[in-house]
Write a protein that binds this DNA or RNA. Sequence first.
RNA 1: UGGGGCGUCGUCAAGUGGUAAGACACCAGCCUUUGGAGCUGGCAUUCCCAGGUUCGAAUCCUGGCGCCCCAGCCA
Length: 562
Amino acid sequence: MTIENENNTNFIKEIIKKDLNSGANDGRVATRFPPEPNGFLHIGHAKSICLNFGLAEEFKGLCNLRFDDTNPTREETKYVEAIKEDVRWLGFDWEDRLYFASDYFDQLYEFALHLVNSGKAYVDDLSADEIREYRGTLTEPGQDSPYRERTVDENLDLFERMRAGEFADGSHVLRAKIDMAHPNMVMRDPTIYRIRRAHHHRTGDKWCIYPMYDFTHCLSDAIEGITHSVCTLEFENNRALYDWFIENVNTKHTPHQYEFARLELTHTLMSKRKLLKLVEDGIVVGWDDPRLPTIAGIRRRGYPPEAMRTLAERVGVAKKRDTMVEYGFLEHAVRENLNLTANRVMAVLDPLKLVIENYPEDKSETFEIVNNPEDESAGSRQVPFSREVYIERGDFMEEPPRKFFRLSPGREVRLRGAYLVTCESVVKDPDTGEVVELRCKYDPESRGGDAPDGRKVKGTLHWVSASHAVEAEVRLYDHLFLRENMNDIPEGSEFTDFLNPDSLTVVKNSKLEPSVANASAGDRFQFLRHGYFCVDSEDSEPNKLVFNRTVSLRDSWGKGRK
RNA sequence: UGGGGCGUCGUCAAGUGGUAAGACACCAGCCUUUGGAGCUGGCAUUCCCAGGUUCGAAUCCUGGCGCCCCAGCCA
């Protein structure tokens, strides 16, 4: 795997280098990946994971895995397990640094008390609707709540009673006392605690008040001694509040927030809401559908984690918004990895029988074929050959156009690793005229694929001996959406309007060489001349193999012809 | 008519006053027992626009233009 080492910098790395040089944070670098356990991770999260763990790795620091679980109504333990699996799969290790914001609820409560005591937070009795009205608009300042000037003692009493469960959900909130006329809406006395009687996946029913993200995140960072808190661009406005809390609460560490552009890919979507709809409406088979950009999906699709890390490194980290990385960029990283690591195998997806008339009926022999021309250590395997083989229907044309190098009447081609064969005649279905069989002649002198007289052929075809073939189901995947930019669809249209009707093609009776018979879930192969495939982890069984196409091979012949 | 950000090749993206990296894509050629892979070459006289400063500007200044984010008791 090649990872570019030259010029692989970005603005966050530059900030860290500067901090290291100036001796900030005692020379420590600490980052964290902070998902909310309320759904499945996708490729966008993978970029963040690679960035945070990668930064720690590069600068000899540490990266924590922290679940941001401050909203009990949305979070579930099953998601924390799924997320842990995804991070591990990507190749990162948080060691003993697995944290939960909910672990800090007691500490956070103390911090809130500190704000109340210093006159910087107050309990507000306004309803959610009233608070919104008092907040003002983007261009008009807000108004102070009538409860804003309560005394410290009164606020203390009220806040403690909020915690004690004396008030109904929604009746009170604790707010930071900042500035209702602040030009940054985030700073107009933001809510820091709300009353919510909901069962928390970890703290159970211990609490009926829960801290808000803005209050929790920066202080959790401070508690953990995070130095560089990296998040996505939509939190830029929240940075002022992040800093306000750090300044107004006594914390030992003073973390800083930096924002980068999230990863978006063409022909797909990262929106949790839309992905959920695809799952719920049965448009895809589940969160791990190989067409989905979820980590579970790409894992099942067969994308190697190394390729995802390479992608994250190559797309870089910047602040430019609305960037769309071409899907082909990802596919390139996947092919690059698989080319080096996947063993080659022959698979005929659309079989056409080829009978070698001058090959003895009862004869069969095996050929030793190299497993991976890119990797000598991958060795070789024995592939059986006999009088009747299957070739790809698309590898034969009765009336070949110019530049068609494959088989046609009278033409000689190579059966990869076996013999040179010449098409003598074509057998057709008398009713439909469909070609059902090719009658050929082979050159016994060309064993292995080369003729002793040195004559060359233009085409080399993959093949599978008919009597030895293993049947399998092969699932061919394509873009989920026809439209490139799914973040910007025409007014009046629904995102589902752009679904690709051919995002999945199931090939039921493909013929594979027998060496794959014992393949197990997740095994990856290159089906010669087709692409990279893996054994499906859900539906494949020992006697009923199912393969997923991870990505096709580049095809300069097929390109532009379909 | 508020505040915060961003505008460099079709797509990502370096560049931080010294004369436009790299990758993907694309094009051409070589090579090839995968029309795969690989190899070679090509691909921004110009950095949203207009002025200005300077010997010299993508980088500094001024003024425009365009796009994105923010009015959850979500994160």
